[in-house]
Design a protein around this nucleic acid. Structure first.
Lengths: 360, 360
DNA sequence: AAATTTTTGAGGTACGCACCTCAAAACCTC
DNA sequence: GAGGTTTTGAGGTGCGTACCTCAAAAATTT
């Protein structure tokens, strides 16, 4: 009935508490035979260490840093907001979270930040950044120093990170492609593709998935060259107008990122709003409103709340060297239509906390 | 830097530890004025109770029961499996979970089980059951005895439950309706609707949402009367054949439940497989395979892993009288296509646990 | 002002674990 | 078997909280 404790192990194994402790915490000076006796006893009585008590005794604190690029983007803003909320909830489990933006255009800045974090005794880092050789080295160094590192949203496939938290962007692009094809169901036409920039791997992968599906399953569709806005609304407006002139049978628009006010305005001005199928990514205040009013037909998203909580949970698991629950940490590729758009969960009140808040 | 403790409260408020303790744990014998002084101090120094230490001191254990009907259904089997996995993970936080099936056709059996649970000192119950007056009374009694109760999957809107964990089935039906309409994009035709039974509120609500959307947005579609299988595969096959004869322009099939082998076979035999749009609910081994092979075009689902974990988390929060994270507990209406179908997370190995498993 | 009641303080024990010290025991080596 | 080395045991302290007791202090009543 009662959960077995370290004392039960000692009794069962016929050794002292000190020896059990040495085994449990990997301290030296125990004969292999004795270690075996203890681990056997642990298995026999089904001992499960109480991490809460262990952390209490250790008075362990988790220090975690989350690093996002300082690119202006509604998705990043939403993600940062979600991280802040997850961080607030994590205070409760002795976890202190710093959320930092680093200059996206300066690869050395990020490396410098990582070095600084390593100097301070940080225990885990969640990171969204493009992979570079410098970064790869910095992360290897961090991990050798015992810091857990997870890649967030953008994977670092050639880097020894502990885990990747995000979706398969090729699959996300495929999903967008199927939606586009099916919503246009068989009718021929042209599809415009819009992005901030094709330099990011995520956008490239989505485009790749989208093209693959359209080519294989909806060959009657003509997917046009990607328009890049490069952060300039005027440029975006101009290229959209330009391309529309050359695409008389434009029937769909695929937005590789989270969309833009200007794009919606341009479509309106061209008399195309709600007449072409628009598919975009990410649920942000803007896309939320735009799905609600019917300008965007479908969103392919990843839940930012889930991303944020998962990042913190996985980091803690890695720091504690505990297995993670794969099912819980798998980020799903969500399809959001007007009909299944999740209600906006009201943000937890900042400022005055309740008289007594509980912590786990 | 360090988190404030009860001792800090005592110092800050200028009272003894015993008084702080009395205030924190609602023990009597403290003047209102003193209570105020203590709560002020708590707020000033930003004290947050360490629930881990508190539970340790209390040596509190959570006993939770999950009750599902014994109806044979792949969805229920999947949900039960998810509950077992969540239960295994919860051992770690001193939570013991019993998962029971109750006879669905006998309303008294469930009430009897609840009474028995109440007699044993259970601290929370998650329940999936149709609402009846007897059940309503049983739940009121449970809650008055201090037991937390959440409704799972099926809400009990007229019962004083602590929380509902599941989706809005009308919205799920609307989502299915929009997918059907858009996948058929404007072309007229007939849509067949199939269910196990229309007695369940969930099926009714889905049908209602489906009809509302189709009527409003896709009036060219003719949604036929619901076919009920009543658990009999032969009956299902017969009515499907029958209705197909009277529906020469059948273009879609909406399955209110999680689908059935027999339905797929019938469609194949009629030469309709992959020629009509099939939309169903719930991700089960069967629907998963059927989406993969293209027989089902889209699923509208709720993630069973999320349901299970959410149920346990919410119950613990209610037992501890701690606020819940609405964002985390909101169950989303997932749309699953072949392209975004989540990989099957391999079930955690049962049997031999690792030598030392950690607990939080 | 005395008697009574209420409120407060001081102190202890326990929860399950980590981490420390010191001495005793067991194991080697020659 | 004396010397050394390695392994083990006994015991303690602390983490932050809950819960208990008993006496002292303050407030209230008479």
């Amino acid at each position: 009935m009662m959960r077995p404790t370290v004392n039960d192990i000692a009794r069962e194994a016929g050794v002292s508490l000190a020896t059990v402790d040495r085994v449990l915490n990997d301290r030296p000076g125990v004969r292999a035979k004795t270690v075996q006796a203890v681990t056997d006893a642990i298995r026999r009585i089904g001992y499960v260490r109480d991490l809460a008590a262990a952390n209490l005794a250790r008075s362990r604190n988790y220090r975690i840093a989350c690093l996002l690029p300082d690119t202006p983007s509604q998705f990043l803003a939403t993600l940062e907001q979600a991280l802040h909320e997850a961080a607030a909830a994590a205070v409760v489990s002795r976890t202190e979270v710093d959320i930092l933006r680093f200059p996206a255009e300066d690869p050395h800045a990020l490396v410098a930040i990582l070095a600084r974090l390593q100097a301070q005794s940080i225990s885990g880092v969640a990171l969204m950044a493009p992979e570079t050789p410098h970064l790869r080295d910095a992360i290897r160094s961090l991990r050798q120093a015992g810091v857990a590192v997870v890649a967030l949203v953008s994977d670092l496939p050639n880097t020894e990170r502990d885990h990747f938290i995000g979706i398969d962007n090729v699959a996300a692009g495929r999903t967008a492609g199927v939606l586009m094809g099916r919503f246009l169901s068989g009718n021929p036409g042209q599809v415009m593709v819009v992005a901030q920039s094709l330099l990011s791997r995520d956008a490239l992968e989505r485009r790749r998935g989208f093209d693959a599906v359209v080519q294989a399953e909806f060959p009657q569709l003509d997917v046009l060259q990607t328009l890049e806005a490069h952060g300039s609304p005027e440029l975006l407006r101009r290229v959209v107008f330009e391309m529309t002139r050359h695409a008389p049978r434009l029937r769909g628009v695929y937005v590789l990122g989270s969309g833009h006010r200007v794009l919606g305005a341009a479509l309106s001005d061209l008399g195309l709003a709600r007449r072409v199928v628009v598919i975009a990514h990410e649920l942000t205040p803007y896309t939320r409103a735009t799905v609600a009013d019917g300008t965007i037909d479908a969103l392919v998203t990843q839940n930012t709340g889930h991303l944020a909580r998962s990042a913190l949970r996985v980091l803690r698991a890695k720091i504690d060297r505990v297995p993670i629950d794969e099912g819980q940490e798998q980020i799903r590729i969500d399809i959001v239509l007007r009909e299944n758009m999740p209600a906006l969960a009201d943000a937890p009140a900042h400022g005055q906390p309740a008289a007594v808040v509980e912590a786990a």
